[in-house]
Design a protein around this nucleic acid. Structure first.
Length: 287
DNA sequence: GCGACAG
DNA sequence: ATCTTGTCGC
């Protein structure tokens, strides 16, 4: 699908604040969703020490709750996370995943807040204005405000801040932490809450977000950068073991025979260690 | 001034 | 968010 509107985001952080305050005035807090036959869920994971992003959007059918379409995007991540500026980090990735989607969903649920935000313009609002689709924010921790305690599954409580009602805490599953629902765009809280309740009957997070999260994780684990990272970490562990044995005065060939029969080492490296290879490792990793 | 702070 | 370690339940 096409992106309805690309919001201008200044370079300067102070100007980003001003832009968020300006865009917040455009957020529609009434219900503009009528026939809700499809719901999209979005999530983003990070790897390669925060330099790579993995985004997924999953569309489900509202009645059957079956997946009707998925789209993903992987690429470099340009921004570091900062509280209140999550959208800068996630929106570019999210929109590129939406560009690869054929269906135009009726509602979008996204991992993060809507108007429950220091400048009333969280990730879900940003996504809502960009896509021009009714959007609900669903955060897994409370960014701001307070609410009364939740007792049983299905309970919800207003989130209030400075005398304003900015969202709802929902005990979506028992024994787990609540989720925090707020308006993204073109929806009201009663509609958002009843919809989120419908799609959290078996998961803490709305089902399409849950699916999107799993897809992001899978992309992350399949990414060569992550696998290279893991190899580097394993190599460092083995180097530490070599150094330890060397300090006990063992020769490299003695260290090799010791480590090659160590079951821990067999899990860390696919190939056998040779004295020659170990000497190179140690010499290129001085203390 | 200090602490808290979506992902 | 990710990483690591340890603990618990099926």
């Amino acid at each position: 699908m096409d992106i309805a509107r690309k919001l201008f985001i200044p370079e300067n952080k102070k100007e980003v604040f001003v832009a968020q305050e300006k865009y917040a005035l455009e957020v529609i807090r009434d219900n503009h969703a009528d026939k809700i036959s499809t719901i999209a869920g979005v999530d983003v994971s990070y790897g390669d020490k925060g330099n790579s992003a993995y985004a997924a959007v999953v569309v489900i059918d509202t009645d059957s709750q079956k997946i009707v379409e998925e789209a993903t995007w992987t690429g470099p991540c340009e921004f570091h996370y900062e509280p209140g500026l999550l959208a800068l980090r996630e929106i570019p990735c999210v929109l590129r995943a939406f560009e690869r989607l054929k269906i135009i969903p009726d509602i979008v649920v996204i991992d993060g807040n809507g108007i429950l935000h220091p400048r009333s313009f969280g990730l879900a609002c940003h996504a809502g204005l960009s896509l021009d689709i009714p959007t609900i924010g669903c955060a897994k921790s409370l960014l701001m405000g307070k609410h009364k305690p939740l007792k049983k599954q299905g309970d919800s409580a207003e989130i209030r801040h400075m005398g304003e009602s900015l969202g709802v805490a929902l005990q979506s599953q028992k024994g787990e932490d609540p989720i925090y629902v707020s308006i993204g765009h073109k929806i009201d809280i009663p509609t958002a809450l009843s919809l989120v309740k419908k799609i959290t009957s078996s998961t803490r997070e709305p089902l399409p977000i849950h699916h999107a999260h799993n897809i992001c994780k899978e992309m992350y684990y399949n990414d060569k950068k992550h696998q290279d990272d893991e190899k580097q970490q394993n190599k460092q562990k083995i180097i530490a073991m070599i150094k330890e044995l060397r300090q006990q005065g063992l020769s490299y060939s003695k260290v090799a025979s010791e480590l090659n029969k160590n079951s821990e080492v067999k899990k860390l490296t696919p190939r056998k260690l040779t004295p020659r290879k170990m000497r190179n490792w140690i010499e290129s990793n001085p203390d």
